[in-house]
């Protein structure tokens, strides 16, 4: 891995962490959703720095839509979407901060103290990657990919049927 790519990787990693932190530290809900978008886009940029071109661009594309939808649902459901009332939207502070830090520290320890063996230096060119990924999807892992598609269908039906109002609500009772 070249030095430039490594510097970019660390830079975007820090950006992702900073915006991931901002998500829970701001009281404006649209800011919170778009911070998450920035964090996810930084993760996509890290994919690009790791030469996974297709996945990086797909991540950057998908998250734009998903987090904008998050933003509109936030403004719909929150009592104080603009964050001007200064409401505190968190609870059980000490257990959650402690839990987050302990789990994070454990995972860091696992990452740091495992012998990972030799690093691969070369990856296939983007063209070849796209081809190989397509072959993987349509040959060996086709069953898994198809079941992911079926799951999408099931989730769509489930989400719509969950969100529909009851009959009595429509009648005005």
């Amino acid at each position: 891995m070249s030095t430039t790519a490594l510097i970019l990787l660390i830079f975007f990693g820090l950006v992702a962490i900073w915006f991931g932190w901002r998500v829970f530290m701001t009281s404006s809900m649209v800011r919170s959703a778009l911070s998450l978008l920035a964090s996810m886009a930084a993760i996509g940029a890290m994919f690009l720095a790791m030469e996974a071109e297709f996945l990086g661009i797909l991540q950057i594309m998908m998250m734009a839509t998903e987090m904008s939808i998050m933003a509109i649902f936030m403004t719909m459901f929150m009592m104080d979407p603009g964050g001007m009332g200064g409401m505190d939207m968190s609870h059980q502070k000490i257990p959650s901060i402690g839990g987050g830090m302990i789990v994070g520290a454990l995972v860091v320890c696992i990452a740091a103290f495992t012998a990972w063996g030799n690093m691969a230096l070369e990856v296939p060119l983007p063209d070849k990657q796209n081809y190989d990924l397509g072959m993987e999807l349509m040959k060996r892992s086709m069953m898994i990919f198809e079941s992911a598609g079926t799951t999408i269908l099931v989730a769509m039906i489930a989400a719509v049927s969950t969100a529909l109002p009851y009959k009595s609500d429509i009648d005005g009772n």
Partner: peptide
């Protein structure tokens, strides 16, 4: 390095799930 970054993000995510 990458695993550490991911671990920190995971920790922030856990804080969000528990604390919000």
């Amino acid at each position: 390095i990458v695993l550490t970054i991911a671990a920190i993000l995971f920790g922030i995510g856990i804080y969000g799930v528990l604390g919000q």
